[in-house]
Amino acid sequence: MVLWLFFMGREDKDDQYRDLFSMYKANYTEKVQSLIGTELYDFLVSCKTSLSEGATYNISGFKEFSIYEVRARYFLWPLRSINQDADYELRFGPDREDIVGYKEYKRHANGSIYERVGL
């Protein structure tokens, strides 16, 4: 029992308690910004306001299995992420590029939105 209680103490891993207290003080937008990063948040808000409801998209600019990509997909719903022939290609990050079958639709400080040609 003594050993059990001894091991119950938990260290403050990666300043998690400081982050937790800051969450208590933050409003909802600040909480989401803190979770996904301000740059991504601003880009996603721009996407959400620019794209028509029900549109499909493919988002890139993240590492493989990135939690930020997953959070982006969650944030953007009811815009729907699909792999192929999406209405829009969303590129997070400063790089611009040409995508076959798509034209630039909107440029943002933290990324670009490309629209499928003929949409």
Binding site: M23, Y24, Y28, K31, V70, R71, R73, Y74, W77
Partner: peptide, 16 residues
């Protein structure tokens, strides 16, 4: 109490 859904599987699967 204060944190929105954020962990990988929670967001990717259940919350979405």
């Amino acid at each position: 109490l204060p944190v929105p859904i954020h962990s990988h599987d929670a967001v990717a699967n259940y919350a979405l």
